[in-house]
Simulated scan of single mutants.
Amino acid sequence: MEPPTATKNKIIYATYIIAALDITLLFAQFSVTPYLARRLGFDTLWFGYLQTTVGVIQLLGGPVFGRFADLFGARAALSISSLASVVYFLLLAAADSTVWLFLHKLPAVFMHALPGAQMIVADLSPSEKRADALAKLGLCFGIGMIAGSTLGGTLSTRYGEKFTAYVAAVGSLISLLLVQKFIPKHTKKHNAKENRQGAGSVFNLGEIIRLMKFPGVAKTFSVKIISGLPSGVFQVMFSIIAMNFFQLQAQQNGYLMAYFGVVQMVIQGAVIGRMTSRYSENSLLMLAIGMSSLVGLAQALTTNVFQFCFVVVPMMFSLSVFNVITDSMLTKSVPASDTGTMLGLCASVQSLLRTVGPTIGGFLYETYGVASFGYIQFTVNAAVFSFLLIFQRNIHKT
């Protein structure tokens, strides 16, 4: 029996709180790791290897986590994610060598709270309001970015990296309790037990690959990877850019990330929902890709952090619209029983970018400088925009 609207809304609001807490703790860790790595003797290349390790781990875990959520329910999936986060932060607190810093990344294979939250929102929101609901989840991301960056920067500056990691571990334990209290075992309309019996195991790659055969999925997924690669490389390398190019300290970097969060909150909370009610998703996707190309050109010409703060506004707009619209389009292209797996695949795109991003980003940074990130983003997104424009025109002609 489908739960009433009031119950659905209560679950969605609880999901927003859990997602905001998880993102807060994640960004608190972002304020710790680069500076801890530097203290342990990491250079740009080795920090890139560290980021690549995380990307590979989450790339492998993303689709499996999504399929696990489809088969066994939202509560079980988010509980595993929260438990993994507790272990992750405790290992970070214990990291006092290069080996330990790499080992503490292993629990990240299970840390997929945001895709899990997206699955709940996709399951419980009407199809026509899905993009707006996912955008509101992005609002939680902005809140977490502000709170986590400020908290992490302040705690690590005043009390050190270990204390910050312990605080994050306690926060993850609180997140686990919230999941157990407010998230139901299953949020899908179909019978989960029957689905488990008929769909094979969690590790059935055939079932995961099957989703790519639905109409429009392969094209949208390819656009998500290709168009998102340049900005993904820049995001992966941003902590190094902030530290070396902009010469920011941990607390200053926290303030800058908080500014990112404020901008994203406004865009995701007040802009995207209104735009999705007025314009088609295809039009918004084209807008995001075109603007991303222009943002890349602006990034290439940026020479100081003050100028960069102006570029942040269109950058966050294009990123937010692009991620929300592609996720919405992909979940609508597959059956409701497979939205978790699809969102796990979407999360794996980000993991893929984090996997190849540090290697590509480290090479570009050392060889061609910061401006190269912007020029590549401009070129790639301009090409994708042109391809989609020609593709749509050909469809209209036929």
Results as ranks from 00 to 15, higher is better:
Ile289Ala: 03
Phe246Gly: 00
Ile17Met: 14
Met265Lys: 01
Val86Thr: 10
Phe373His: 02
Leu71Ser: 05
Val167Trp: 02
Gln249Asp: 15
Val312Glu: 09
Phe391Asn: 15
Thr303Phe: 10
Lys129Tyr: 07
Glu128Tyr: 01
Ile12Lys: 08
Phe89Glu: 11
Gly362Met: 02
Met237Leu: 13
Arg39Asp: 15
Tyr88Phe: 15
Gln307Cys: 06
Asn282Phe: 02
Leu101Asn: 01
Arg67Gln: 10
Gly171Leu: 00
Ile240Tyr: 00
Pro126Gly: 12
Ile267Ala: 07
Val324Asp: 03
Cys309Ser: 14
Gln247Arg: 14
Phe306Gln: 12
Ile11Glu: 05
Gly296Cys: 11
Ser328Thr: 15
Leu101His: 02
Leu25Tyr: 03
Leu40Ala: 08
Phe203Ala: 13
Met316Asn: 08
Tyr166Ile: 15
Ile267Cys: 06
Phe306Thr: 13
Gly55Met: 10
Ser348Leu: 08
Gly269Arg: 04
Tyr13Gly: 11
Gly73Ala: 10
Phe47Ala: 03
Thr5Ser: 12
Ala108Phe: 04
Gln58Met: 15
Thr15His: 02
Gly344Phe: 04
His104Phe: 09
Gly357Pro: 09
Lys213Trp: 05
Leu285Asp: 01
Leu345Tyr: 02
Gly142Ile: 07
Lys10His: 13
Ala94Tyr: 12
Ile325Phe: 10
Ile11Met: 07
Phe246Cys: 01
Ile80Trp: 03
Gly232Lys: 03
Val32Glu: 02
Met257Phe: 15
Lys162Ser: 13
Gly206Ser: 07
Ala258Gln: 03
Tyr279Met: 13
Gly228Leu: 04
Asp70Phe: 01
Met243Lys: 13
Gln118Ile: 08
Gln180Gly: 12
Ser318Cys: 14
Ser85His: 03
Phe30His: 05
Thr98Val: 15
Gln118Ala: 13
Leu229Glu: 11
Ala94Cys: 12
Ile325Tyr: 07
Phe47Met: 13
Gly232Ile: 06
Gln58Trp: 04
Thr339Ile: 14
Ala84Gln: 06
Val64Arg: 09
Phe234Thr: 10
Gly148Ile: 07
Leu78Cys: 09
Met329Ile: 14
Ala298Pro: 05
Ala371Asn: 05
Met212Pro: 04
Phe378Leu: 12
Val86Phe: 06
Gly216Thr: 12
Glu207Ser: 14
Met1Gly: 14
Val233Thr: 10
Ile208Gln: 05
